[in-house]
Design a protein around this nucleic acid. Structure first.
Length: 184
DNA sequence: CAGTGGATGCTCT
DNA sequence: GAGCATCCACTGT
């Protein structure tokens, strides 16, 4: 799961052609109290318990949608929350859906990103390697930043938030940033 | 800038 | 009935 999180930074994600480079994600482990999968399978999190490579989409605070990548084999509810993208394609459609034009704010947050890409509960359980999704692996090594996850109360100290070092499109700056370089 | 509070709906206790 | 893996507008410096 951490390997998947680190691997996703720098990849490109599109939904119906709109999207960009993944610059921020968070890892959620099945034994992690902050994870939706921690308390066992329910109607909402059922997709987390399925095979990897599928989208787990849930409603957040009654208002926003959040998109996760399911990791690990079926039965192990690990997932990676996609928190921010650097917009690269479909800028006009994303701006229209967000009611904004500032590229900076189009996809810099899990709720914003889903609104910009048009991701909703209808995408829950869909495979991420087939339309409307498109996922492109990165072609070069990237420099990673890690830090505590955002907006949670349980296990808030775990440094399981991953970012692309120096990106202006992360949802929030990484405090006390420690960096590391991945392989491509 | 930083900090606060409201919107809003669904899931789980 | 509480508690959210959020965002935005508004306040006061």
């Amino acid at each position: 799961m951490h390997a998947v999180a680190a691997e996703l930074i720098g990849c490109e994600l599109y939904v119906d052609g709109a999207g960009g480079r993944i610059v921020e994600v968070e890892a959620y482990h099945h034994e992690d109290p902050a994870s939706h999968g921690h308390r066992g399978r329910t109607a909402r999190n059922a997709v987390m318990f399925g095979p990897p490579g599928f989208a787990y989409v849930y409603r957040s605070y009654g208002i926003h949608w959040c998109l996760n990548f399911v990791c690990e084999e079926a039965g192990v509810a690990d997932a990676v929350l996609v928190r921010a993208l650097e917009p690269l394609a479909g800028l006009e459609r994303m701006a229209a859906r967000r009611g904004l034009s500032a590229a900076r704010l189009l996809c810099s947050g899990p709720g914003r990103l889903c609104e910009a890409l048009g991701v909703t509960g209808a995408h829950d359980g869909l495979p991420l390697d087939e339309p409307p999704f498109e996922l492109r692996a990165r072609t070069a090594a990237v420099e990673l930043v890690t830090g505590p996850r955002i907006g949670i109360t349980k296990a808030a100290e775990l440094p399981w938030r991953y970012g692309l070092a120096g990106s202006a499109f992360v949802s929030r700056a990484f405090p006390r940033a420690t960096t590391s370089v991945t392989r491509s």
